[in-house]
Design a protein around this nucleic acid. Structure first.
Lengths: 211, 211
DNA sequence: ATCCCTATTGTCCTTCAGGACAATGTTTTT
DNA sequence: AAAAACATTGTCCTGAAGGACAATAGGGAT
C-alpha cells in the first residue's frame, strides 16, 4: 500500500507529506513511476497545479499503463466541469490540492477500497443540480408550478423575476410576512434552498450547467 | 461518538451490528431517540425499508430537532431519484441497506467529519449524467463573461451556481471580503442589481421571460 | 518613473432574506 | 360536522448580502 504523487515541482505540499510521510514524488509519469504505480493497492495523486499542464493527458497515460490504478486529481482551482472531465476520464477522486491531511487520508481510504471521491462542495453542487434533472418531466417549469398553490405561484413568479419581498408585498397587496411564508413554502415544495435556485427553476435555467 | 439506527422492525441487520456493535436501535424518531441524537458526533442511520414509510418526513423531523445531525439513509432499494431527494433534504449519506460492515464504517468516517456520502454506483451515474451537461456556453453567457476579469469570472460563476460568499471564499482560497469586491464589480460591469440577476444571465435564463 | 488596472483585504454599517414560534379566519376535503 | 389545507399576519432573531470608505502590492502600459 503506497502513495505516489505527481507534481511538476517535484515537491510535496506540507499537508501531503503530513498525510503520507512515506509517499514518493515524481515530476512526471516516467517509466520509473509507471513501474512503481503498477504495484497493488497504490493510490496515485495527480497534481493539477499549473493550468498549462495537460492533466487529462497524464491521467489517460497512467490509466492506459495501469488500468486499475486509483488516481486522485488534486486541483489548485477545483471546478465542477473539470471534476466531471477527470471523473469521466477514469479518475477515482477529485479534491482541492490544499485539502487538510485528515481529508487526504479519508480520500485514500475510500478510493483504495474501490470507492469514488468528490469533495463535499462539489458533491453538494452536483446533488443540487441533479436533484431537479432526474425527473423526467418534459416541462419542468409547469411541473414545478403545479406543485404550488395559487398564491404560492403568484409569489414565486415575482420572486423569480428578482423582486424583493417588500416589492412583492406591495404588488400583491399583502404583507411582507405573508410573502415570506409563501416563499418558504415554495422552497419546501420545490426542494430548493433559496430564492436563487427558485429563480433558476422557474426561469427554466437549471437544466443548463455553468462550468 | 455513537451510532443510532431507526428501523421499523426495531432490529439491527447483521452487518449493521457487525459494523457498530454498540449501536442503539429505535423503531421511530421518539423523544427518547431525539434526546440521544442531540449528543455530539452522533451518526443516525435511517432505514428506508418499508416503501410506505415516510422516510422524508422522518428525516425532516430529525433535522428540525437536531439541525446538525448526520443522517445516513439506508435504502433497501436505492434509486437515483430517491438518493437526490434525501440528499437535497439534508441527509449526509445514502447507501444500500445491505452494505457490508466495512462500507458502513467508511460511510461513518466520512459523514462524521462533515463529508457527504453516495455509493459508487450512484455517484458514477451522477457523474455520467452531469458530464453530458457540460456544453458550449451560449453566446450571451460568453459575452457576459468576456466583460469580466479572470478573477471576477471565477467568482461570478460560483455565485451564479448559488454558492454563498463564504463558500466561494473557501473554494477559491480568498477572503469573503475579496469575494464581495469581485461580486460588486461584476454587478457594475454586467449592469445587474444583485446576484439573482447575475445568476439568471450566466445560466442563460434571462432570455426566457416569465410572464 | 509614473500611472492605471487588477487583486486582495480590513472595518463598519444597513437592509434584506430566511426562519422560529405563534395565531386567526376561510375554504376545501373527508 | 370535523379535519385539513390554505391564506394571512405578528414578533423576534440570526446570518448573509451589499455597500462605503480605506488601504497595500504586483504587473503592464505609457
Amino acid at each position: 500500500m503506497q502513495n505516489l504523487f505527481i507534481t511538476s515541482s517535484g515537491k510535496l505540499l506540507a499537508d501531503w507529506e503530513k498525510a503520507f510521510a512515506a509517499a514518493q514524488v515524481y515530476a512526471a509519469a516516467s517509466p520509473e513511476f509507471l513501474k512503481a504505480a503498477s504495484k497493488a493497492k497504490t493510490v496515485i495523486w495527480l497534481h493539477a497545479g499549473n493550468p498549462k499542464h495537460d492533466v487529462g493527458g497524464s491521467l489517460r497515460q497512467i490509466l492506459q499503463a495501469v488500468p486499475q490504478a486509483r488516481v486522485v486529481v488534486l486541483s489548485n482551482m477545483p471546478s465542477q466541469q473539470h471534476a466531471f472531465e477527470m471523473m469521466s476520464a477514469g479518475a477515482s477522486g477529485y479534491c482541492h490540492a490544499y485539502s487538510a491531511a485528515a481529508v487526504l487520508k479519508e480520500v485514500r481510504s475510500v478510493v483504495q477500497h474501490g470507492g469514488l471521491w468528490l469533495g463535499r462542495e462539489l458533491l453538494q453542487q452536483l446533488i443540487n443540480v441533479s436533484a431537479t434533472l432526474v425527473s423526467n418531466q418534459p416541462d419542468q417549469v409547469a411541473d414545478a408550478l403545479d406543485k404550488l398553490t395559487a398564491r404560492e405561484r403568484d409569489v414565486a413568479i415575482e420572486a423569480a423575476k428578482g423582486l424583493s419581498n417588500k416589492e412583492i408585498a406591495r404588488l400583491l397587496n399583502i404583507t411582507e410576512r405573508t410573502v415570506k411564508a409563501h416563499i418558504s413554502a415554495c422552497f419546501e415544495r420545490l426542494k430548493v434552498k433559496d430564492r436563487l435556485q427558485l429563480a433558476l427553476i422557474l426561469n427554466d435555467k437549471s437544466s443548463r450547467q455553468i462550468n
